Simulated scan of single mutants.
Amino acid sequence: MTVINDSPRRKELTRQAAQLFVQEGFDRTTVRMLAQEMGIKSGSLFHHFRDKQEILAAVIEEGTQNALAIARAALAECDNTPEARLQAMARAHLETLLTDRNAHVVALYEWRRLDPESRDHLSHLRDAYEALWEQVIDAALAANLIHGDRFLVARFVMGALNWTSRWYDPAGSRSPDDLAHELVAMITHDAS
């Protein structure tokens, strides 16, 4: 089951659906609302998607694939030190929030709304993203850059980064690089 396809129209519809899911929530968003937002008739929506559940899965799949691509590219381009890799992952996560905020927020808050088939299909993407974080955190732990339980460190770090979707203003005085640097400084402070 691959929910994403390469149709530019479908990708645009998926982005519009993500915005509506963020504004209204998945449960309150109706097919009629989706069609109106997308500028098509309700029946035309089913030319692109089987049902509302498939739209949700497409939003989450596209957003998670984008997050994976951004994170992998950041890790490939940075120095291979634990601190540089930690910084790169934090910056990549923030970049995901900036470039694909709606899809990311939908994945965070509406994952539980996925049907079991979609959840099973998309779990490998979520797991792959979390595995990147775990590798980076393991290396930082092994280098004594940070201390703690890997599971808890990963959850705390990702939770803090995810919460920026609620308060961060891209037009404000702090850049994503500033935020990533500050996070790494906080979790590595007094670690040695």
Rank of each mutant, 00 (worst) to 15 (best):
M1E: 07
V3E: 10
V3Q: 06
V3N: 05
V3G: 02
I4A: 12
D6P: 01
Q16S: 07
A17Q: 09
L20E: 02
V22G: 04
Q23C: 00
F26M: 11
D27M: 05
M33W: 06
I40M: 14
K41Y: 07
K41G: 10
K41C: 00
H47A: 08
H48I: 03
D51N: 15
E54K: 03
E61H: 05
A69T: 13
I70H: 00
I70T: 12
A74V: 09
L75Y: 06
C78R: 14
D79C: 06
T81E: 07
L94W: 12
T96S: 14
L97Q: 14
L98K: 02
D100E: 01
V106G: 06
R112M: 09
R112Q: 11
R113L: 10
R113M: 11
P116Y: 04
S118R: 08
R119P: 06
R119W: 00
D127R: 15
Y129A: 11
W133L: 05
I137S: 00
D138T: 14
A139M: 09
N144I: 02
I146F: 00
L152F: 00
L152P: 00
V153Y: 05
F156S: 03
F156V: 14
S165N: 14
R166K: 09
R174K: 12
L179K: 03
A180M: 04
H189Q: 15
D190Y: 02
A191D: 05
S192V: 05
